[in-house]
Nucleic acid binder design. Structure first.
Lengths: 345, 345
DNA sequence: AGATTGTCTGTGAGCGCTAACATTCCGGCG
DNA sequence: CGCCGGAATGTTAGCGCTCACAGACAATCT
């Protein structure tokens, strides 16, 4: 920087002013400095700047290392939004999102100098552990469920489950069976809650939900169980992968879909239209969740910088994204909802 | 740090020595310092350390923002390995991996102070652009194809395609049709090459490959085309998602699988066993690719630190991971390869 | 005994930048 | 004509840490 200044005939501080776009630099000086920077191939050192300013322009994302469609999509939504906002994303993934690993990951990121943290969390225990994290850093959670003292952004899981269940009831099914996600998953719990509430409101019996682990395999096993029960006519499966397994099991058992059994999934993965039959499901806009959560975090950070009172770093504004019912052939057999329809959209 | 030193009755430098595990600190001093750190809640500032040492312990990953199974799995493999090696990962994703965006992303990361860069690249033009990136930073590419002047880690795509094609030929099919990935994808090209070479070696005719875009939808359209041609008895599809679409199209056309048409996919996504029928495919160990590429990068960086000669930052050691054929019901109908088999493993 | 080695600790400088204040210069005002 | 204020620039002092060196002291060797 001093070299640039020397070449341009100014002080290092004026170079700094040019870099930071200060208004108090004359146009001629500015262009001389820019030329000198160009000539010397100067690149500002963001580490030194971070040390001097205390701002790293870096955010941490804590995530499971799962390659499930949801978390991965959310992560990329976050990265895109961060890029636009001028922030970098450093990731701390973990095999298991349990009570212990969350604080550890947050600590790693804190040491690394991030200005704020986004946690993509599904496990209930892990979410509880979040409340105990010391609030010295802005933090936003992408997590289903009730308020926990920091901003939350997520898709409305209860509403999604309601849409799915109501759709099946509206089709005339006496009740709707449910293949749930793992018991520790907050999303799974919320989907159970939405499903149950909708059945109860309709006065329909509430069969015991089967429990899966999000994987196609567990959906397959649930499907085998359900296929054996002749009265099962409608199933709401808590994600598309499990729904795939269930479709497979129904196919093996020669239970025709949707004539004998209607199936609704959750997520609307890109493959869902190409299942056999194509899957009615609940679309979640993960990209939107990612960008909204990032926006909330950036707001919190920038409020923090301007606020004199640095006591509470946990702003309250969260955001709920609405889910959407996508009707396909696993619930309704007629042409308007066939593949051809999907292909147009 | 000075405060800690004062409390422990030593200089700041001794505190630094304790933090960095220097051997030249007496046990009693060390424990006094540790106690003082604990008492004051001291956290070392990694930014300041990075400024002083020049090492940020941070690596950049350039990746498309796709949520395809392959790139996402590789990314998490990288993160896991980086964690173990004591490095942080900052990601720079991009919508389109074309010629222009790669250098831009690398520049962003460079400014941010990363010590090395991993590029997960599929697009041929983007890979070409890589060769023009100034070699002032260690760089490892996760990319299919020939040597380009920097270390490459990938799965052997040609071999994978050979395994798939040979498997189908061994089953007695006169030839094997191919649904390829997008023309710009290096993986797609390598898979075409392996498929074509295997057919030619066997003296089988080489039908023109159909072109897809990795999405299930394009596989579906390819499937509709192929289903119309009665002589088609074996299809090698360049990834599992497209294979799903193709299975769907065959099902609609009432072409029975594997009796009339045998299908092999590529990737072995977690869902592949639950397609209808379950999909024979080529397994790629993406996690292994991730960790090997990280290891190669870390080696390059650490060689760099110790080497007096800082002229060439492009070590030549790459690594090729072997693919594996997973036989399931889309090519062989008998019991040994049914779901039950998969479930055991 | 003196010289030599080794261990432990302290001192000062500086990594590259920005914040705060100081200075210069200029035009416009009474 | 002198004074004031604002724009442009310079000066100084850190940000929190590590590096290179220097010093103190004990143990070992000749």
């Amino acid at each position: 920087m001093a070299d640039v200044g020397r070449l341009a005939g100014v002080s290092h501080q004026t170079v700094s002013r040019v870099i930071n776009g200060s208004r108090h630099v004359s146009p001629s000086t500015r262009s001389r400095v820019l030329a000198a920077m160009e000539q010397l191939g100067y690149r500002p050192n963001s580490i030194a700047r971070a040390l001097a300013t205390g701002h790293t322009k870096t955010l941490g994302v804590v995530s499971s290392d799962s390659t499930l469609y949801g978390p991965a999509s959310t992560l990329f939504g976050i990265e895109r939004a961060a890029h636009l906002a001028g922030y970098f994303i450093v990731i701390a993934s973990m095999r298991a999102l349990d009570r212990g690993t969350i604080p550890e990951a947050i600590d790693r990121l804190r040491l690394q100098g991030v200005e704020g943290i986004l946690v993509i969390v599904s496990d209930a225990d892990a979410a509880d552990a979040l409340s105990e994290v010391s609030p010295d850093l802005p933090l936003v959670a992408v997590v289903a469920g009730p308020d926990r003292g920091f901003p939350i952004v997520s898709v409305d899981q209860v509403e999604g489950a309601r849409l799915a269940t109501r759709h099946l009831l509206d089709l005339g099914h006496p009740t709707v069976h449910h293949v749930a996600g793992p018991p520790n998953s907050l999303e799974a719990r919320q989907r159970i809650a939405g499903w149950r509430a909708t059945l109860e409101e309709a006065g329909a019996p509430v069969p015991p939900p089967l429990v899966g682990d999000w994987g196609a395999r567990s959906g397959y096993h649930a499907g085998r169980r359900l296929a054996r029960e002749p009265q099962v006519s409608a199933v709401f499966v808590a994600n598309d992968q499990m729904a795939l397994g269930l479709l497979r099991a129904m196919h093996e058992a020669e239970r025709r879909i949707p004539d004998e059994v209607s199936v609704v999934g959750f997520d609307d993965t890109p493959e869902a239209p190409y299942f056999t039959p194509s899957l009615t499901t609940i679309r979640q806009d993960f990209g939107e969740v990612g960008s909204r959560s990032l926006a909330a975090l950036v707001r919190a950070i920038e409020a923090d910088h301007s606020a004199a009172d640095h006591s509470d770093h946990r702003p309250q504004e969260g955001s709920i994204v609405a889910p959407e019912l996508i009707i396909r052939a696993s619930t309704v057999g007629h042409a308007a909802t066939s593949l051809a329809f999907d292909e147009r959209s």
